[in-house]
Design a binder for these strands. Structure first.
Lengths: 218, 218
DNA sequence: CCAAAAGTGTTAGTGATACACCCATGT
DNA sequence: ACATGGGTGTATCACTAACACTTTTGG
C-alpha cells in the first residue's frame, strides 16, 4: 500500500424525542467489525470534497441538498490500520423526519444514536464526534443552523427547547425570547398553535432573508 | 495519474518594519512558473499532517518548534492542473528575527511579503491567504498568538502597535491597556525602557502560565 | 376553578467604546 | 522650555443574567 487515501466523514446531527442524536453506521468488516462509525467514504479523483461528503451522505441516508460545514482534517498515520488514510470531516444538523434512512444500502445499518449513549466507535471517530459536538454547540450561538429542525411555522418555546436539547442546559425563557426577537430574523404570524389545555402559542416564521441556513447572525 | 496527492501548505505570518508579512516562495517550474506561492509540500506516507507541515516549514525556513494551527482543507479537483491534489493548510505567526530564511534550499527563493502587496499567487493560494488573514485577525481577539513576536520584556505600546499592525486599524490606548491588564496574563517588572526624549515605558512580561502560545484567553 | 404552558419587564453587572489631559524624560 | 511618547479615569451604551407573576386556554 503506497497510496495516500482520502475519505470524507460526515457527522450528522438531529434532534428526535428531545434528544440530540448522531447518525452512525455499523461496520461489516475488519477493522472494527461490528463497531459503529461515522458515515463516510472515499473521495473520487475528480470530485470536490464537499460534493463527496454530500454524495456519501446521500448514498447512505437519502438526504440531499443540505448545508454542511467542514470540521477538521484528521491525519494521524495510525488512525487506520489498513494504510494511510486521512479524513476530511464535515458536520451538519438536519431534520430527521425529512429523510428516510436506507436501512441496508451499502450493507450498512444506519441509525440515529443519542450522543449521550455513544460508546466506543471505530477508528478515531470518538475524537471526531467530540470535536463536532463542540463546534455544533458553539455554532448555535451565532448562526441559524438550529432553525433547519423546525417546521416553517413554530413557537418560541419549540425553538428554545431545541436550543436546550442541543446545548444540554436550561435557558431562561424571557432572556431567550428577548434575544431571538432582537435579532430581527423572525416574523410573527397571525396564527397560533392550540394544543393542550393552556394558552395558545404564537407562531413565528423566519424572515426570507434569514432562510439561508447556517448563515451567521452576528 | 490515478493517485490522490496530499500536500500541506503553511501560511506563515510575521511583523517586520511595522508591516504584516507573509512568507512566500517562488515557483521554479510549471505550472505557475515564477509566480509566488505559499510554502508547502507533499505529506509522506507515514507522517502526521502537522508534523509534515512543520518539516516542510523547517526545510524551507529553518524555523522549528512553533505553534501551528490547522486552517482549512482545500480540495477543488481543478486546483492543480497536474492532478488531484488536496491541501491541508496550517497557519502561524512567528518572530522573523528568530529564523534565517535559507535562501536557496530546494531551489526556492523564500521571502517575506507585505500582505498588502501580494498580487496573483499560484494555484488557489490567494484564496488560502485571504482565509488565513481572516482567521489570524479573529484569533487575535481571544488568544495570545501575537505575543510570540515580542521579546521577553516589552512595553504595552509595543504590544498595542503589534495588534494594530495585524488588525490594520488603530486601537484606543486606554481601552487596550485596560483590557490587557484585566486579563491577568501580564506581570509588571521593575524595569523600564528608556529610549528617546520622553518618559520611560514600563516593561512587562507574560506570566509563566500564559506562555503557552496560542492559548485561548477566554 | 384548576392545571398547564404562554407571555411579559426590571434590575444589576460586565465589557466595549469614546474621549483629553498630565507625566517623565532628553535635548 | 519644549517636544516626545508614556500613562491614566470616567461616562455611556449594549449585552447578559437573574428573577416571578399574569394570561389564556381546555377540561
Amino acid at each position: 500500500m503506497d497510496k495516500m487515501l482520502v475519505t470524507v466523514d460526515i457527522v450528522l446531527f438531529t434532534v428526535e424525542h428531545e434528544t440530540l442524536k448522531v447518525l452512525l453506521v455499523q461496520r461489516k468488516f475488519e477493522p472494527w467489525k461490528d463497531l459503529m462509525v461515522i458515515p463516510g467514504g472515499f473521495v473520487r479523483l475528480d470530485e470536490d470534497l464537499e460534493k463527496a461528503a454530500k454524495r456519501e451522505l446521500f448514498e447512505e441516508t437519502g438526504v440531499n441538498n443540505i448545508y454542511m460545514e467542514q470540521l477538521y482534517t484528521f491525519g494521524n498515520p495510525q488512525r487506520d490500520p489498513r494504510g494511510r488514510v486521512i479524513t476530511v470531516t464535515y458536520y451538519s444538523l438536519i431534520d430527521s423526519t425529512k429523510i428516510k434512512l436506507k436501512a441496508s444500502t451499502d450493507a450498512k445499518n444506519a441509525k440515529w444514536f443519542p450522543i449521550s449513549k455513544v460508546s466506543k466507535l471505530g477508528f478515531d471517530h470518538n475524537l471526531i464526534l467530540d470535536y463536532a459536538i463542540k463546534r455544533l454547540r458553539n455554532k448555535l450561538n451565532y448562526t441559524t443552523i438550529a432553525f433547519q429542525l423546525l417546521p416553517q411555522l413554530f413557537t418560541l418555546t419549540e425553538l428554545q427547547k431545541l436550543y436546550e436539547i442541543i446545548l444540554d442546559r436550561k435557558l431562561d425563557k424571557r432572556n431567550f425570547r428577548k434575544k431571538l426577537l432582537s435579532l430581527d430574523i423572525l416574523d410573527e404570524t397571525r396564527e397560533s398553535k392550540m394544543e393542550g389545555a393552556h394558552r395558545p402559542a404564537k407562531l413565528y416564521k423566519f424572515k426570507k432573508k434569514s432562510l439561508v441556513f447556517g448563515r451567521d447572525i452576528v
